[in-house]
């Protein structure tokens, strides 16, 4: 079973993408999408040998909710900073020590950081233990690190590790 269907989550996702691409929800396209969703993971297995496991779906959904809310709130904040005086900005690089170990969780955290409150993930150390983050207007670096760890890293860790 595991050899025939190496990525059980990727198959329905690819089928959904196929349906959206064709903008049609007919049975024929659904079957074709499922076929592609079955074949593509088989042929690209060497690229990602480990299947993704989602530990707690409820935590994941809450995380997605917080994330979407933060994206909208963060954008109003960034818009205010851009329209204000550039001299009042306090840009800073902040080092965030990572507790996450899997590649997927780290890249999700980095992407989340880039899309939310005035921060862009800038550099990941080769040993994957520190993420350097650039903040647009940093008041207190320690507080920023604590927020990132508590708000985004903890749920990601619960879900993917």
């Amino acid at each position: 079973m595991a050899r025939l269907l190496p990525h059980p989550l990727l198959t329905p996702l690819l089928a959904l993408v196929w349906l959206l691409l064709n903008n049609s929800f007919s049975t024929g396209h659904l079957l074709l999408g499922l076929l592609l969703g079955w074949l593509i993971p088989l042929f690209t297995l060497r690229f990602w040998p480990d299947a993704v496991k989602i530990g707690r779906p409820l935590t994941l959904m809450r995380f997605v909710g917080i994330f979407l809310l933060d994206v909208v709130v963060a954008n109003f904040g960034v818009a205010r900073l851009i329209l204000g005086s550039p001299d009042r900005l306090r840009p800073a690089f902040v080092e965030v020590p990572l507790d996450l170990r899997t590649d997927l969780a780290i890249s999700l955290l980095a992407n989340t950081i880039s899309l939310t409150p005035g921060t862009v993930s800038a550099w990941l150390s080769p040993d994957r233990r520190t993420l350097i983050v650039h903040g647009l207007d940093v008041d207190d670096p320690a507080e920023l690190v604590a927020t990132i760890k508590q708000r985004y890293e903890t749920p990601l860790r619960e879900v993917f590790e």
Binding site: V71, A74, N75, V78, A79, I82, L83, P86, L89, P91, S114, L115, G118, V120, A122, H134, L136
Partner: peptide, 24 residues
């Protein structure tokens, strides 16, 4: 606003913020 940030903010790293967040 994202493009305005790209045009008027002072250095490269701050300019990066506008396009990634606001424009998206």
């Amino acid at each position: 606003i994202g493009s305005l940030g790209l045009a008027r903010l002072p250095d490269f790293y701050t300019r990066l913020h506008g396009p990634t967040k606001a424009t998206t």
